[in-house]
Simulated scan of single mutants.
Amino acid sequence: MESDPVKEEVVVAQSVVGDDEIEELIKNLEEQCKINEKSGNFLEADKIYQRILELKKQGQQKKREILIARQKNEASDIETAYQEELKLHNAQWQEKLTLFKQSCKDAEDQLIKKQQNESETNKLSLEESLPIIPKHSPELLNLKRIQDTLVRNKEYKEAHYVQQQMIELEEKLKQTWGIDRDAKIQQNLAQLAKRQENEMASFKQKILSGAEELKKMRSAEYESLLKKYQNLRKELVITHKLEQNRFEGKHTTGCGTTRIDLNQSSRAIFNLRTPMSSRPATAAGDRSMMGSSSLKNLSSP
């Protein structure tokens, strides 16, 4: 049984990868079709013509598969870029929050140490400024003058009696003075403790405000990132739809974009992107965040 050269060419065409080779094969078959047409061999011409249609259909199907595969790759590239940038976004913010928490802890430790030193210094100052032995009261000074007068007059028994009164009065004054002195010290320390409590409360409020500010900044960056990729996806969907319509020979509304324009538009989606992953995650960049107003004030509540 003789082999069909036309069918063999079709089989060969199915294994050909390049479009140029298929187009060349179709061109050869069209020439054969014309030759058979001129020679009146219409059945053979019809057979060749059917092969040409089959080749064109196969070529069109192959182009469609290539188009779909490329569009899937482009969509996958956007999703991959989004996931990578989102991962970097989360990692950078995790580092920023860690630095923020450490900065808050350091500032709180410094404030606690400052308040402890202040309390100790104030207590020592009070202890030194308030004498343990009270000053002589007017009553005690009066008894002292009486005693001196009695001694000068050689009235020793009366002087001894006054002396005993002075001793009893001094003991009584010491007991009273000790209670008053301790109460005065405790009152002063309590006032200082209240002021320090307010100082610590103000400091912690600044920490909460700083944390809230960082939360808003992170949310704003994420929303910006999400919106950027949503726009990229929408633009890519529109571009792919235009490509598919033009491939199917459908009318495209609008500007009548050519295939070259569509391809350039598709590539521009990737070339014009400026993801966070293209920015180096430097320590200096992280420290710049620590210079915000909420963090500057932590060390000076």
Rank of each mutant, 00 (worst) to 15 (best):
G210C: 01
G210E: 04
K216A: 12
L236N: 03
R233M: 12
F203D: 07
E212P: 05
E223K: 02
E213C: 01
N198D: 14
K228W: 12
A201K: 14
K227D: 13
Q196M: 01
K215N: 12
T239D: 08
V237A: 10
I238G: 12
Q205Y: 08
G210N: 05
E221G: 03
L225Y: 03
G210S: 02
K227F: 09
E235D: 15
E223A: 02
S224G: 04
K241V: 05
A211Y: 06
K204L: 01
L226Y: 02
S219K: 08
L226T: 02
E212W: 01
Y229C: 01
S209I: 10
K215Y: 09
L236A: 05
Q230W: 07
K227R: 06
L208R: 07
K234F: 13
Y229I: 06
M217N: 15
S219P: 04
L236D: 06
L226C: 03
M200E: 12
S219F: 13
K227N: 00
S224M: 10
V237M: 05
R233W: 02
I238Q: 14
K234H: 13
K216W: 15
Q205G: 09
T239Q: 03
Q196G: 13
Q230Y: 07
M217C: 12
L208W: 03
L214Q: 01
K216E: 15
K241S: 15
L236V: 02
I207N: 04
L226S: 00
E223Y: 04
E212F: 05
E235C: 08
Y229G: 08
A220R: 05
E223C: 02
K228V: 14
L225F: 05
Y222G: 02
A201D: 11
E199N: 12
G210P: 04
F203K: 04
V237E: 10
I238T: 15
A201P: 03
E212V: 06
I207H: 04
E213W: 02
M217R: 15
K228S: 13
K215A: 13
M200Q: 13
S202V: 06
K215S: 11
E213T: 11
K215V: 10
K216S: 13
K241M: 13
E223W: 07
E199K: 11
